[in-house]
Design a protein around this nucleic acid. Structure first.
Length: 513
DNA sequence: ACGATCACGTA
DNA sequence: GACGTACGTGATCGCG
């Protein structure tokens, strides 16, 4: 495009600061035109996101209304001028507010630079093996067909198995199964309910199997295939930098941050994710227990800090503390329970939630939590302080000063208040982990560019980065990525990164080191 | 056509 | 007296 060509010398002059709305979009557009824009500095969407990451409408019109108290006219002729003028004035207002809230370092050092990295990742894309997906689709189709017939026979009629409403009628009215749980609109038929009913009628397990396969085929096999760009033979996700309230990224069209891994059936989808060039390999690098390490650091909990410093299995250690036994005597069962407790802490635990998760009584769950807080007294203290801080200031912050307002923290409604308290606990933990991986992404990206490596960063999945690399760069990249990620933001505990390598995202081999 | 709801995939 | 956090997508269904 002509505009890109004409503007190229100005855009590539870094002495000219540029005000934008959605810098990443512009990076992607200009990247396609081979323009390496330099002066991108004030992005109103990104800045206003930092001012209030819970805000759901970040449209320019809405920002102009809220920050400048101006109404953008409806008429198209007047609108363009109003929006551009608004953008310029908004940038000045935003700068003032970022300064006031001490968000400028986060904005300048991290977020505005991350936008460029994300654009590069989106442009790079991820290669998918279409034949692999087609084969999986065929197989799933056949198995779904068999299950469908079996379900119709067991139900003694044909119905739409995909409709929770129709399924509810079959299960709870025709077959007389006990309705365990209700939704707003009728019977609940979710996996938890069906698992409870599984031994009461043969049809139930088949429904569960059916659901699993249909999910894989529709969302992953067909869904991914439809989004392959025929020109590049790749999928080019959008990484959204201004969606989550905690500072994490999100991914859409396709969402590449929820590709199955837990169940073997689903995990096979990952076989289709391959490097974009012959002979290249995939490299994954994931932070081990980053959220619990962040918690240990922020809470300054000496027990938790020592556990990580000594490289202990953190779930075994928590089991030892909660069940009051030596680490050598921790059973699998105890470790499993401790793992749920560790997860629960990060989410702002409740005895009810833990009891449900572990299938134990609420009383037992309560005792576990009390034991946890007795042994990890620093964590207990941090939680109390953080909730108090939320009450006093109205917001909580991450390690890098990212801010989230906690509106209902003083609510008289128990449910709203409890939810707010859990949010106040989870946000600094999840958000600080997000801060850290963003720093790591920037540094890794810069090193790839500086050293003119052919290796490319292609995905971020919250605590994991995925790269594709030519074989001759492999060993250098492995040590560079690991080192860079582990030193991205020094804490009172070590950050540990596990690395894997393989020819696709399924068959990965751990790298020792 | 679109939004709400349910269900379910990830960290 | 109901409940652990953060997301995105697909199918259905009822609305317009």
């Amino acid at each position: 495009h002509l505009y890109a060509k004409i503007l190229k010398p100005y855009l590539e002059d870094d002495r000219i600061p540029i005000v934008t709305y959605d810098a990443k979009l512009l990076y992607v557009f200009l990247g396609r035109e081979k323009v390496n824009i330099k002066g991108m500095k004030w992005d109103v969407m990104l800045g206003c996101y930092l001012l209030n990451p819970s805000r759901n409408d970040l449209s320019l019109k809405s920002l102009i209304y809220d920050y400048l108290h101006e109404v953008v006219p409806e008429e198209e002729e007047k609108q363009a001028f109003s929006l551009v003028q608004g953008l310029y004035l908004l940038a000045q207002e935003m700068i003032k507010l970022l300064e006031k809230d001490e968000l400028m370092p986060l904005y300048l050092n991290i977020e505005i630079s991350v936008a460029k990295v994300l654009a590069a990742m989106e442009l790079q894309g991820v290669r998918l093996d279409k034949a692999q997906l087609k084969a999986m689709g065929k197989e799933l189709e056949a198995r779904i067909e068999v299950l469908t017939d079996k379900i119709y026979i067991l139900a003694e009629e044909e119905f739409n198995i995909n409709s929770p409403k129709q399924l509810g009628v079959i299960l709870f009215e025709k077959l007389g199964l006990p309705p365990v749980k209700k939704t707003k609109t009728g019977y609940s038929t979710n996996a938890e309910v069906l698992e409870f009913l599984a031994d009461k009628h043969e049809i139930v397990q088949e429904i569960l199997n059916y659901r699993q396969l249909v999910k894989l085929k529709s969302t992953y096999v067909d869904g991914l295939m439809n989004l392959i760009n025929p020109k590049t033979k790749k999928v080019h996700t959008s990484f959204n930098q201004t969606i989550t309230a905690t500072g994490r990224l999100s991914s859409t069209e396709p969402n590449l941050q929820n590709i199955p891994i837990r169940l073997e059936e689903g995990r096979k989808i990952r076989k289709a994710f391959i490097p974009s060039k012959e002979g290249y390999i995939l490299l994954t690098a994931d932070y081990s227990q980053i959220e619990l390490r962040v918690l240990a650091h922020m809470a300054e909990d000496q027990v938790l800090i020592n556990a990580f410093k000594e490289g202990q299995d953190i779930h075994v250690r928590t089991a030892a503390e909660v069940f009051k036994v030596p680490m050598e005597e921790v059973t699998k069962e105890m470790r499993y329970h401790a793992k749920a407790i560790n997860f629960g802490i990060v989410y702002g635990i409740s005895d009810f939630g833990l009891a449900k998760d572990l299938g134990i009584s609420r009383k037992e769950a309560k005792e576990h939590i009390e034991n946890y807080f007795t042994r990890y007294a620093g964590v207990k203290n941090w939680i109390d302080n953080t909730i108090q801080e939320a009450r006093n200031k109205g917001y909580v912050t991450t390690l890098l000063g990212r801010r989230r307002y906690i509106n209902d923290i003083l609510s008289k409604n128990y449910n709203l208040r409890s939810f707010a308290e859990r949010t106040a606990i989870n946000t600094p933990i999840q958000g600080s982990a997000a801060d850290i991986i963003k720093i790591a992404m920037l540094r890794v990206y810069n090193k790839l560019v500086e050293n003119k490596y052919k290796t490319r960063m292609i995905l971020q999945v919250h605590d994991e980065l995925v790269f594709e690399a030519p074989p001759n760069e492999c060993s250098k990249i492995i040590s560079m990525v690991k080192e860079t990620m582990e030193s991205a933001y020094p804490l009172d505990v070590p950050l540990k990164v596990d690395m894997q390598v393989g020819f696709n995202w399924y068959d990965l081999e751990s790298i020792k080191g």
